[in-house]
């Protein structure tokens, strides 16, 4: 039907065919006519105009009342025609915005990309998925000159573009820290001042910073109001919360952060996450933290990267593949 001509003659023929036969084929043709008209941006009032003319040509002696009623209908439809034009314009605008946004999202991915470090004794896995195009979560690995591994994980409240812009600021501030040993409490205190100065009062950022000393397998960490991660002890086969209370970034510029320390034994895992993980919903229920720990336990025989991927797939399935919030999960496991 792609050769259907959108003119008065075609419409008249189709209408005549229907009036005479009232068969399905004629109706199908009418449907095709309207589909083609939509593709050609023909507005509803124009179709009525065509109908009116076809009617007059087929039945020149249509009573005046009917003729007048058609004029009346035409007048009534004009606003629909205008609305349709507006809709077309908005549609184009939306496509434009969408493509701009996807360019921005790509840029963000490049900006925030981080290289997963390789160590003999440390198996590292990380995954991060935005709920919409832009990601308000952030994780970053930094190797310092003394062979320690710094891990930052952060979550901006809110989603979408404002959150993503904020995250880029965090990334640059982190990059400008000197490359000698980065103590978690000092990193967070610095970041707190940056956020407090530069971010709107209703916006805030939660952040966890950990430093893994690869020489003696000790893990130092501080938290700025970030969702607690889990520490998995291989010897006891238990998960416990990594408790490290501290105020979110950007609320009070003079906040100081406590630093904690954990000895990491072979097989032990450090699990860091954002509240996109704990705020997953299945149906109307929230996922409890114990459930997350159980899912990780279920996959713990796999390499760290596969664990993070499997856990993400698991919760994505539970939510019918519609994330409500950005989702980030990082796992470090001491191998030897």
């Amino acid at each position: 039907m792609s050769t259907l001509k959108l003119d008065l003659q075609t419409y008249k023929d189709l209408m005549k065919q229907y009036i005479e036969t009232q068969n399905e084929q004629a109706l199908y043709n009418a449907e095709q006519f309207s589909k083609h008209s939509i593709q050609q941006n023909i507005s509803p009032d124009e179709i009525i105009n065509v109908h009116f003319q076809a009617l007059m040509e087929l039945y020149p002696d249509v009573p005046d009342d009917i003729r007048n009623s058609m004029n009346f209908l035409l007048e009534t439809m004009i606003s629909y025609g205008l609305a349709y034009q507006e809709y077309q314009a908005l549609r184009e605008k939306q496509l434009e915005l969408q493509s701009e946004l996807s360019v921005a999202a790509k840029m963000q991915q490049t900006l925030l990309s981080t290289v997963k470090p390789e160590y003999n004794q440390l198996d590292v896995g990380a995954t991060s998925h935005p709920a919409k195009q832009m990601n308000g979560d952030y994780y970053h690995f930094v190797e310092d000159q003394e062979g320690s591994l710094g891990i930052a994980i952060a979550d901006v409240i809110g989603k979408g573009v404002p959150a993503a812009l904020c995250m880029s600021m965090i990334k640059y501030s982190m990059d400008s820290f000197p490359e000698k040993r980065m103590e978690p409490s000092i990193v967070l205190e610095g970041m707190n001042r940056v956020v407090e100065r530069n971010v709107d009062p209703s916006m805030f950022i939660t952040m966890f910073y950990g430093l893994y000393d690869t020489k003696d397998n000790r893990f130092f960490y501080s938290s700025a109001g970030h969702e607690p991660g889990f520490y998995y002890s291989a010897k006891e086969d238990t998960f416990k919360d990594i408790e490290a209370e501290g105020l979110v970034l950007g609320v009070d510029r003079d906040t100081s952060y406590k630093q904690f320390e954990q000895q990491v034994d072979p097989g032990d895992m450090i699990v860091l996450l954002t509240d996109g993980v704990t705020e997953c919903r299945s149906g109307d229920d929230f996922i409890e933290r114990e459930e997350i720990a159980e899912v990780i336990r279920h996959y713990k025989h796999l390499p760290a990267q596969e664990i993070t991927d499997q856990v993400y797939s698991h919760f994505e399935r539970l939510q019918d593949f519609q994330l409500r919030d950005d989702f980030t999960l990082v796992i470090l496991r001491r191998e030897v």
């Binding site: 409240i157 009062p201 209703s202 916006m203 805030f204 979110v248 509240d275 705020e279």
Partner: peptide, 14 residues
């Protein structure tokens, strides 16, 4: 309540 709600209370506190 999600973190957006916390944002409102932080603004209110300030």
């Amino acid at each position: 309540m999600d973190s957006t709600g916390l944002g409102v209370f932080i603004s209110a506190l300030k």
